[in-house]
Amino acid sequence: MTMKDDIIGELVTLRDFWRYAISRFSAADLSYGHGTSNASDDAAFLLLDSLDLPIDVLDPFLDARLLGSERRLLADRIEARVSTRKPSSYLTGHAYIQGVRFLVDERVIVPRSHIGEILFHEYIDLGGSSFLPDPMSVETAVDICTGSGCLAVLAAKFFVNAEVDAVDLSADALDVARLNVAEHDVENQVSLFQGDLFAPLEGRTYDLIITNPPYVEHDAVEAYPAEYQAEPAMAHDGGEDGLDLVRRILVTAPAFLNPGGGLICEIGAGREILEEEFPHIEFLWLETEASQDAVFFVTAEALGVS
């Protein structure tokens, strides 16, 4: 009998597997940050999503007895998380933004954008935003560096009257984005383009530009733990100081913005650098649960659009 057989035979409930997974993850000194921040939460996500259970509700299911096929699946995925060190989302095939599920695999970065949190907070929690446009008035929006397409899909859901474009340099990423567009039934709203930032959008203008570009310093990408190295490097690498693409976006965006529109961009770090290099731009820095200056909003007028 193998060790795996012993585990499947001895662990019976979800609680058993959760405790076991936490112990294995902690002993392996795994890294997190793909929607979870510690062994306990990562184990809960892996187990619940593998069983198609709500990922934010663990307690009601803890003492549920699992089928033999379910025990084998969980044992396999716990072992894979430790042995491959891939993010749990790659093992289950799903990632979530504010409870909305998206399809993911190794062709795309695991989505975890602060912008998704901001959209939900501004339009649902507050019932209306003080800086983002009225969702009913947005007729055109674009998601630059769309990756899995998650922000483009959310834009289509919030801006129900809008045509939403989504751009990525990676053809592989766009294949995943296409799956998510179909999964969320927004094919009639969302159009996908392959190219470098705004290059495939010549002649188009937008009420809102959304972008979560690569923004990690090159040296930091080189030093990533295995979980982050499992993701496409081009989705992280923002050049020497992480801001190469952000600079290009700020310079190019005005030609693609309608008057009264705006740009929302995630940068991670680098606020002081941007404010020093672009002193004429009035940045509105947006607070999220985990950060106070990882995302900015800039009006079209602040970018010189009239």
Rank of each mutant, 00 (worst) to 15 (best):
E10T: 13
E10I: 00
V12E: 13
R15Y: 06
D16I: 01
F17L: 10
A21Q: 08
A28C: 08
D29N: 15
S31V: 01
S31H: 12
G35W: 02
G35K: 01
S40D: 13
A43N: 07
L47E: 02
D52N: 15
D56H: 13
D56R: 13
V57E: 15
D59C: 00
D59I: 11
F61M: 00
L62F: 01
L66N: 08
S69L: 11
S69V: 15
R81F: 09
R85P: 05
K86A: 13
S88F: 03
S88N: 12
Y90A: 06
A95T: 06
F102S: 08
R107P: 04
P111D: 10
H114L: 11
I115M: 07
F120I: 14
G128R: 14
F131Q: 05
L132W: 09
V138G: 03
V138Q: 05
S148R: 02
G149S: 09
C150S: 14
C150V: 12
V153L: 13
A155W: 01
K157W: 12
F158C: 01
E163Y: 05
V164I: 15
A166E: 03
A166Q: 02
L174M: 11
V186W: 05
G195Y: 03
D196K: 07
L197S: 10
L201P: 06
E202C: 03
E202L: 12
R204G: 01
I210E: 06
N212K: 07
V216S: 09
H218G: 11
E222R: 14
P225D: 10
P225T: 09
E227R: 00
E227Q: 02
Q229A: 09
E240I: 12
R248D: 13
V251R: 14
A255I: 00
L257A: 10
L257G: 10
G260D: 11
G260P: 11
C265R: 01
G270W: 01
I273K: 13
E277A: 14
F278A: 08
F278Q: 04
I281T: 08
F283W: 05
W285H: 09
E287C: 07
S291D: 14
D293F: 00
F296L: 12
V298M: 09
T299L: 05
T299A: 13
E301M: 02
E301G: 06
